[in-house]
Design a protein around this nucleic acid. Structure first.
Lengths: 344, 344
DNA sequence: TTGTACGCGTTATCAA
DNA sequence: TTGATAACGCGTACAA
């Protein structure tokens, strides 16, 4: 293994060893200017770099160029299993282009989000990927206003001029409702996610459309957050008001877990008494009891797309915005079954 | 909301507005030198900072001071639910001290790990937290050699001079074995994690000790990795060779999931035929089927401790190394029950 | 108590 | 094709 030297090596020392001027070293090492230098000189520089184990100082480079080859990734909470795959997709796609991801958690707080973004921008990040946007997001507006290269992932905002990568929420909900309809369910509930998020809002809207089209009786309660606790509370309300429901479409998998809790609480069995469909196909929902029927979202791909969109945006700040929608699929497992025979 | 200006503000502009020299601004803004400046002057500087929305440029600062107020966090894979809570603990503890975490995934590859660490060090990170160390880790040796402030979390290395925060692996295994013994199990297996990791090695060693002390018949197979797939393979081997086992202690929760798979594969029920105990109490293992009996590890606290250890290490590079061991507890759920009556 | 002057390591511009 | 020079924004001896 190459011995790593104690003291950082600078261009100057490389220049000395190669017998050239520091500026020439810089030119030889920079892809854009490499062909300005004589091949033989470049070779000598490369050799000196090798010998000394020179590594460019990103801080100095960033200070001079005002670019950092890094991008910020803002997520609500890494602890939510939804986000790590997205982040990995982003990282892997960025890595190919030489970029690094700076990850920040916001915990849903606007305050922490602003501080996090500021800190990222202070570090000269070249762009930003937001996984936490709400539909009318002042922060997003300000960032686009400031011309910061920006891509939303997982959620959209109400502004068509912003690049965004989302799952096909409408399709997912339609698949879920069709599945329940096919199983004979006629009274279907929806525990929606917060309506300020595009996922919460769009899925609710799609649920209304799909149930109407199928001629189903439907009821909706909105959860305060995309958490199992909030889901349980909302589901309890839903079940109390509408005991005739035989199936629930949850706003996402965590809410679905809350629904399962609420059912158990009321002494109802899933899927025998009430079927439940989630959304996302989070890791491990195939192993819970009962294994969750849900809408599979390719989160890693979502992240990859977002990174590629950002890379292209950073290359060309002027290109028209693109809204990428990735396909989703229904995964049938154990939490859905044929509607029970109607009671007395 | 305060309007964020388009162009970054520098000390120079703050100085102009405050009617002082840039150096004075710098002094007024730096805690260590703040009292060198007249209170009235400091006030004027603060006001100018406010008015202009000045934010120090971390790159320039880092270039000058050779410190960056950031630390690297190296994890095998953020997608493994084990690590996000650790990372969050680290971040939250660092945040209080003004530090930022740079997160890097290694995917278990030495190559990616080296590149990741190099990239972090290039950015002048002031310290490093490694969650992926193996017992005899060349990278760790080199880093300590280079005097890089370093803390290991989750795993240790065989070098007492390195700060480390780990769960009490021996205690955890003893609790698991005692629990099984109390339930009447007399033939107990262990699907160990890779023996090159301190967790794999220590838990295996503790398993041997605990079963011997309790007079249990014990068998061991080592899994190739801490994954459910590797766990399933190893557990299948174990069950094939030792069909008389009535309980398995798994090297961690993911391996435990693999054990459940292997049992199902052989047509055995858990816990009726074979009990299984995990290790870690990962998110959602309380919701799988059957709910996993496991050793609870406070991962968030693990991360917090690691960050605090690193902060202290960065303050005093010379202080003796500390090995922090955090308590663990047994969480009894549905995957363990009384040993079945011995067959014919 | 404040100002002067310089350098951290790099790259962009200009001149040769 | 290469060298000289300045500047990115900041902190810090040293001088005043």
């Amino acid at each position: 293994m190459a011995r790593v030297p104690r003291m950082p090596v600078t261009v100057r020392e490389v220049a000395r060893l190669a017998g050239v001027h520091p500026a020439t070293v810089s030119r030889a090492l920079n892809d854009a200017t490499r062909d300005l230098v004589a091949p033989e000189t470049a070779r000598r520089v490369d050799e000196a770099v090798q010998r000394l184990g020179y590594r460019p100082n990103p801080l100095a480079r960033g200070l001079r160029t005002r670019r950092s080859l890094s991008v910020g990734v803002v997520v609500p909470d890494l602890t939510n299993p939804l986000f790590p795959p997205i982040v990995r997709g982003i990282e892997d796609a960025l890595d190919g282009a030489g970029y690094t991801a700076l990850i920040v958690n916001t915990d849903g707080g606007v305050d922490r989000e602003q501080r996090g973004i500021a800190s990222i921008l202070d570090r000269q990040a070249d762009g930003l990927i937001l996984a936490a946007a709400t539909l009318t997001d002042a922060i997003v507006a300000e960032l686009t206003d400031r011309q910061v290269p920006l891509v939303l992932v997982n959620r959209r905002v109400d502004d068509e001029r912003v690049d965004a990568v989302t799952a096909d929420d409408r399709l997912g909900i339609r698949l879920a409702v069709d599945h329940l309809h096919d199983l004979g369910h006629r009274h279907v509930g929806h525990v929606a996610g917060p309506s300020a998020t595009s996922t919460g809002y769009t899925r609710l809207s799609a649920f209304r459309t799909a149930t109407r089209r199928r001629g189903l009786v439907s009821h909706v309660v909105t959860a305060a957050a995309f958490t199992s606790a909030a889901g349980a509370t909302a589901a309890a309300t839903l079940l109390r008001h509408h005991p005739d429901l035989t199936a629930i479409v949850a706003g996402n998998d965590l809410i679905a877990l809350g629904c399962l809790d609420a059912l158990r609480e009321r002494g109802l069995r899933c899927p025998e008494d009430v079927s439940v469909v989630g959304f996302n196909d989070m890791p491990f929902v195939d192993r819970i009891h009962p294994p969750l029927t849900t809408i599979h979202v390719p989160h890693y791909a979502l992240g990859e797309h977002a990174a590629m969109l950002l890379l292209s945006r950073m290359r060309d700040g002027g290109r028209p915005a693109r809204q990428v929608v990735v396909e989703v699929t229904l995964v049938v497992r154990g939490s859905t079954s044929a509607a029970p025979i109607a009671g007395p």
